[in-house]
Write a protein that binds this DNA or RNA. Structure first.
Length: 795
DNA sequence: TAGTTTTAAGTTTTT
DNA sequence: CTTAAAACTA
């Protein structure tokens, strides 16, 4: 290797990672195993392109699948080079929305569209399928959504692969017509429509090819067909494309993800180079062994050999427990014990409790609350699914788009204004002819009963007044539709209030048990006014008094969230878009400390891209995980999900499996998960009563059962004081002492880093470490046993 | 039509 | 067991 001195941020990388970062020219496919540092590769690559290659940050597009990943990527890239903040880092869907706001006109789309979520789509569909049950409507809505994922329109022949019924095709066509008439889009459209536009409008395509010279995609294994097509259309002849993924971590088949995308990438992009990242820096060897032994059973995979760079480590613990109450107690105790014996801070955040379905979080929440252990639940914030929130959002949506029949139907008669379903149907029907629903109502008003007429009029008046509350947009002339849709982002309205006082937190505190809405800054003023004048606030307030709910407080919460946006139409649109595309309320609802000092409760799906020191995987039972109805391909996906969950763990992994589980109020006996059988017994430390027939030694298990201690509380009664009792003979050896330049490590406080210099002093060797946060620190090499974990070095 | 009671149904996973 | 949908009454 040449003797050139590398910039320190490249020192953090191993040779393959570095090769991936320095790669240019042909398309690049990075097959990155779990914990192999793929995010680091992407962020470093972005920074390197800007710094060393003189690439304009604005010509870089990096796409992820979750908002969290997008945020993290932006943050980490900025740490290396500030200018990376100007690159476009978004989720596929958010980028699609950005595209459509500027170029939707080419598909007859007004830039002021609102994004319909799945519920809204169902609501719209039920207007078409009038005499179908709710379940049928949902099924069709799901199929339409799948069709869009596969880039299939209602007139495509392949549509039969999704749903072959003739009726389906007709309904899909009707749905599209109806949706177009509302002027809104659904989730699938955010990807599908841009592709259609790029194919039809060569001028727009050319602009985008000019603008984006570099396109990177993270978690590529989760891309669906439509997203693949999007990528292909965005890439011009000069565009450098780099995708990163891991076929073993593909867990979104159910929403259209196609592993084929990653398998066939080299065929679709000729000349593709492939780089494999197979060194795992995150997990200890025993954890990786257990995780791999499950996913190894899958047939449809590229296959790779993921090597643990961290030696030593404890065996994963498999705990057989009587029921789910014992399971929650076990988890709480495990976490609590660790906290008691820990010397260092931030213990709670070391832990994550994983479950298959969101419903399972409830038990853990109750138990942790009871024991005073701080926790946070990731995802599944049903906040936006609450009735009052949906009502409020419907009001706001109708405000920006008076053709939104779904929103209209939801709130026109709430609170009761004497406008029944018959009247609503007639107005919407009339709306097919009119430019918007207000006009439709006016046209129809001579035929309405005086009560219905008065009700509709009062509703429309409220909306008129609401519209008047919004200030003029600073950029008139429809700022979204700047001439150069792919070009200057500065033309977009700077809708966010720049010096936004974090009014949210303070307001919420004040609003506790308050019986009136308080407005804060910016858009929240308008939101509060509208909630009041529409009667929604009063309506839910009354409901609160009856049933003791917190609905008014929830409305307050929503208003607070709005305070960060400008009180203009543009600001409102941005607010609504943000809510549709990123429902994790995390930013507003949690302070940094709350986040950093709490146990994480999370679904397996949501853990992708995350890591924790200690992970508990719960509910490992047949029927729960994997679900009973899973077989073949779907079972393989469940295996991958198991793999994803297990590889989140850095130091310790626990698996729990109950003998019985409560479902639908009934308590049923359950079998241990198939996946537990797929792990070699010697790779696990089993505690609790091994169920009959588990593993090869059936008779042994039976014998053990016969002599098992009295059933009841305390199967794990001899639980360790500290988790050290689970050590199982393995010591987490840190291999301190002989540090060498180029060694990589994980520091408890500073994260991942690399040794850039070693020298001797009176107190022994001193090492200089460069961290990926950009920090560079000196340490005394011999005293860092408990703070550092060596994670292998480059060869 | 509004609001209440009765009955049935249902749990994946998410942008 | 909890929630949503259908059925029923005022």
């Amino acid at each position: 290797m040449a003797l050139t001195v590398l910039p320190p941020y490249l020192e953090l990388l191993n040779s393959e990672q570095r090769r991936a970062v320095l790669h240019t020219g042909k398309p690049l496919l990075i097959l990155a195993g779990a914990g192999s540092g793929k995010t680091r590769v992407i962020t470093t690559k972005i920074a390197w392109l800007i710094r060393e290659q003189g690439v304009d940050p604005r010509s870089i597009l990096a796409v992820t699948f979750t908002n969290k990943a997008a945020r993290e990527m932006a943050e980490r890239a900025r740490l290396i080079d500030e200018r990376a903040g100007d690159a476009m880092l978004r989720t596929f869907h958010s980028f699609g929305a950005w595209f459509l706001r500027r170029n939707g006109k080419a598909a007859g789309l007004d830039p002021g569209f609102v994004i319909y979520d799945d519920d809204d789509a169902v609501s719209l569909l039920s207007g078409i399928m009038e005499d179908s049950s709710k379940a049928e409507v949902k099924q069709v809505a799901h199929n339409i959504s799948r069709a869009k994922d596969y880039f299939l329109s209602f007139d495509d022949a392949e549509l039969a692969l999704i749903d072959s019924r003739r009726k389906f095709r007709d309904i899909y066509a009707l749905y599209e017509e109806r949706l177009a008439h509302t002027g809104n889009v659904d989730f699938g459209d955010l990807i599908k429509k841009p592709v259609e536009i790029l194919r039809k409008e060569s001028e727009i395509a050319r602009r985008f090819h000019d603008r984006f010279k570099v396109i990177m995609v993270d978690e590529y294994q989760d891309a669906n067909v439509a997203q693949f097509e999007f990528l292909k259309e965005l890439a011009g002849p000069e565009t450098y494309i780099c995708v990163v993924g891991d076929d073993d971590q593909s867990i979104y088949r159910f929403r259209g993800a196609e592993v084929k995308n990653i398998l066939e990438f080299p065929d679709r992009f000729p000349g593709t180079e492939i780089i494999r990242l197979e060194r795992n820096y995150r997990s200890t060897a025993p954890i990786l062994r257990a995780a791999s032994s499950v996913v190894d059973r899958n047939r449809g995979r590229l296959g790779k050999t993921l090597r643990a760079e961290r030696g030593g480590g404890k065996l994963p613990v498999l705990a057989f427990l009587p029921d789910q109450d014992e399971e929650t107690a076990f988890c709480a105790q495990l976490v609590g014990n660790a906290a008691r014996t820990a010397e260092r801070g931030k213990v709670w955040s070391d832990w994550a409790i994983l479950y298959r379905t969101n419903a399972q979080s409830l038990g853990f929440e109750t138990e942790l609350l009871r024991r005073g252990i701080p926790y946070r639940v990731v995802g599944s914030l049903k906040f936006y699914e609450r009735e009052e929130i949906k009502d409020a959002l419907a009001l706001l949506s109708f405000l920006v788009n008076p053709r939104d029949e779904v929103a209209f139907r939801r709130v026109v008669n709430k609170p009761a204004r004497g406008v029944g379903s018959v009247t609503v149907d007639r107005i919407i029907e009339e709306g097919a002819e009119a430019s918007d629903l207000a006009e439709a109502a006016r046209a129809l008003s001579p035929e309405l009963s005086s009560r219905a007429k008065a009700g509709v009029e009062s509703f429309l008046k409220v909306m008129e007044e609401g519209r008047a509350l919004l200030e003029e947009d600073p950029f008139p002339n429809d700022a979204f539709d700047s001439g150069d849709g792919a070009g200057d982002e500065a033309a977009a309205p700077p809708a966010k209030v720049p010096a936004a006082v974090p009014a949210g937190k303070a307001n919420r505190k004040r609003a506790k048990n308050r019986e009136e809405l308080v407005s804060g800054e910016g858009l929240s003023v308008c939101v509060v006014c509208l909630m009041r004048s529409s009667g929604i606030a009063a309506y839910h307030q009354t409901q609160d008094e009856v049933s003791g709910n917190q609905r008014l407080n929830n409305l307050q919460e929503l208003a607070n969230a709005a305070s960060l946006y400008a009180p203009t139409r543009g600001g409102l649109l941005e607010f609504l878009e943000h809510i549709e595309l990123d429902r994790s309320l995390e930013d507003q609802a949690e302070t940094a400390e709350e986040r950093s000092n709490a146990v994480t409760l999370i679904t397996f799906h949501n853990t992708k891209g995350l890591e924790f020191r200690k992970v508990i995987m719960t509910g490992l039972e047949q029927g729960i995980f994997p679900r009973e109805d899973k077989k073949n391909e779907e079972l393989e996906e469940e295996r991958r999900l198991f793999y994803v969950g297990a590889t989140r763990a850095m130091d310790e992994l626990y698996l729990t499996s109950c003998a019985v589980r409560r479902m639908f109020g009934r308590t049923l006996p359950v079998e241990p998960s198939l996946f537990l059988r797929e792990i070699d017994k010697s790779s696990l430390r089993i505690i609790g009563e091994t169920p009959y027939g588990f593993g090869a030694a059936g008779t042994g298990a039976a014998a053990r059962r016969a002599h098992a201690p009295e059933q009841g509380k305390g199967v794990y009664g001899n639980t360790p004081r500290g988790n050290d009792a689970y050590n199982g003979g393995f010591d987490a050896h840190n291999d301190t002492g002989s540090w060498r330049r180029g060694d990589r490590l994980f520091h408890d406080d500073y994260g991942y880093g690399a040794v850039t210099e070693v020298r001797d002093s009176e107190d022994g060797p001193v090492v200089r470490v460069y961290f990926e946060t950009g920090k560079e620190l000196l340490f005394l090499g011999e005293q860092q046993g408990s703070r550092f974990t060596k994670i292998g070095k480059d060869d």
